[in-house]
Design a protein around this nucleic acid. Sequence first.
DNA 1: AACTGATGCAACCGCCTGCTG
DNA 2: ACAGCAGGCGGTTGCATCAGT
Length: 218
Amino acid sequence: MVRAPYFDANGVKKGAWSEEEDKILSAYVERCGNPNWRQLPKYAGLARCGKSCRLRWMNYLRPNLKRGSYTQKEEQTIMDLHKKYGNKWSLIAEKLPGRTDNEIKNYWHSHVKKLLKRNETTSSDAASADSHHILESTISMSSEMPCYTENNSPASFSSVHTESNVSFTREEDDIASWGTLDGLNSSFWTEPFITENAFNQNYFPNSCYEAEDTFVIW
DNA sequence: AACTGATGCAACCGCCTGCTG
DNA sequence: ACAGCAGGCGGTTGCATCAGT
């Protein structure tokens, strides 16, 4: 279900989180509150990049997270909010206590897949066209949403949707016009924090770690 | 029982935005 | 106004598990 753990060229651990790492991260965040995610791995003694730590905390370790299947009410809420906000998963997640944007996004994608499949089985020719529209709706947004172009300026596009929550149709595919941007240097996220805290790759301290203020894991 | 395709979901990646100096 | 940094977001990927044959 999860990627096998491995270390990249910089010695940064990727892939599935171990129980030990979870403990370290949870303890650190709970103790320090809103952390500096970039510095966290260094101080907490994790061979992860800050981004990975933040993601793990937000999507899995955060308290009051709901797990398991969605209730009918939640499903309906997601449908309604997606209709309203489009693929603004974080916005949708705000309205669903205990659910993360990642979880909702995953749910939506699998939900759309189901719809696609149902479409294909019910109608042959129309299916491909409908499927295209449904898929488009997942990568764009509803008619109420502004569309951001290359200039980053809101531009409306004409689209309509039917009574069905998922059958959107649009005049044209704006995605293609979003353009490509030159890659920004985001290497800071993956920079290792192993300078002074040179890790043994199989070792994660679980007793004590020294940082700006002493951090103890029990 | 063995195989295979589908599904679910955790995690990664690239990019965007807001803040600060 | 500009550059650099940090946090956040949305899309995509990898892989374990499930379901069907």
